[in-house]
Computed example of a mutant assay.
Amino acid sequence: MITVSACLIVKNEENVLARCLLSLKDLVDEIILVDTGSTDRTKAVGEQFGCRIFDFSWVDDFAAARNFSFDKAEMDYIYVADADEVIDEENRKRFLHLKQCILPEIEIVQMKYTNQLRFNTTYNFDTEYRPKLFKRNRRFEWQDPVHETVRLDPVIFDSDIEIIHMPEGNHSKRDFEIFQKLIKKEIPLSKKLRTMYARELFVSGEDQDFLEAEEYFASLLSEDREEEELKVIQCVLTRCGRIRHDADQILKNALKNVACKTASAEVCFDVGEYFLEKGDLQEAVIWFYNAAYETDSELNIRYSGEFPLLKLAICYRQAGDMKQSELYQELARKAAQEQVSGDE
């Protein structure tokens, strides 16, 4: 049977940490708790469960903290956990079975991360595979009988283990602060981080969060971008234009977006909102309908389902058509249910 180190980075997690550690304590062989500056009883909770506790000075870098935690691990494999995760009894049995039966060549095990949409996280699937278990020391192997090369790609196994995500709330405000600090320090954001920034804005950002991000996303237009990334930028800038009631900015970004092969649901939604705010119900209906039925979402799947359907219900109610309003209200309810219960 393999041995497993569980590695967590934590800060002020006393409300949820015991729940997580209780589900891990007899699954893993050691628990590494890296604290990044807790002012509550987080470390005391960790001590109760026999965790190996280390302090790490927070530098606005989760990757640095993760790397530090990995350096402290001593077992065969490393399991990456967050304090707001729980493994129920059925999946604890699956985890133990995996420890007993895992093949030695497997270097990464993916597990199903569940309960995403219920807590307004930045992911567009309620269940998705995530790499969770990593072989601590990788063995390099040669392959091919002639022109031999070292195998570079890791051996990955998709398990049936489900990890339940149960946060007390999302962490978007913390993330927005980190993004802004990186931008002010002129540290380039990767394409992935730029998209994640935009996604978090459309999942849980408030108007001020969008306006604080506007200058950065506008600056990205100064370089050549692929259509995929341009559409993400257009979504953000169209929303900023709507917040500021800037029709020129809405028009400039929305027209470029709808000229793409497939327009973005977020852009159509915001154009619909613009006309709804102006009281032009007929025009608003057209754009909300396009968001719901004719386009795909770029950043938040609710903008191609539940959200525009709710707005259509509002439009028809304001127009006095209660039958159509009730129809779209019901369609919105069903769309919300389907999104929360859908698989990866």
Results as ranks from 00 to 15, higher is better:
L22K: 14
S23E: 03
S23M: 06
L24S: 01
L27E: 12
L27G: 10
L27R: 09
D29M: 04
D29F: 06
D29H: 14
D29G: 05
E30V: 08
E30R: 07
I32V: 14
I32A: 09
L33D: 05
L33V: 14
L33I: 13
L33Q: 09
D35C: 01
D35Q: 04
T36S: 15
G37L: 08
S38N: 04
S38Y: 05
T39W: 01
T39F: 03
T39L: 12
T39N: 13
D40K: 07
D40S: 03
T42L: 01
K43L: 11
K43W: 00
A44L: 10
V45M: 05
V45C: 04
V45G: 04
V45P: 01
E47C: 09
Q48M: 14
Q48K: 14
G50I: 12
G50P: 10
C51T: 07
R52V: 01
I53L: 02
I53Y: 00
F56V: 11
F56R: 07
F56M: 09
S57F: 10
W58T: 04
V59Q: 15
V59M: 09
D60V: 01
D60Y: 14
D61N: 15
F62R: 10
A63P: 04
A63Y: 11
A63C: 09
A64I: 02
A64F: 04
A64L: 12
N67H: 12
N67I: 10
N67F: 12
F68S: 02
F68A: 14
F68L: 06
S69W: 02
S69T: 12
F70E: 03
K72M: 10
A73L: 01
E74I: 08
Y77R: 08
Y77F: 15
I78D: 00
Y79I: 09
Y79R: 03
V80Q: 14
V80F: 09
A81E: 00
D82I: 03
D82W: 05
D82Q: 10
D84L: 04
E85M: 13
V86C: 13
V86Q: 11
V86K: 11
I87R: 08
I87T: 08
D88I: 11
D88E: 15
E90F: 11
E90C: 10
N91W: 06
N91G: 02
R92M: 09
R92F: 06
R92D: 09
K93D: 14
K93C: 11
K93R: 14
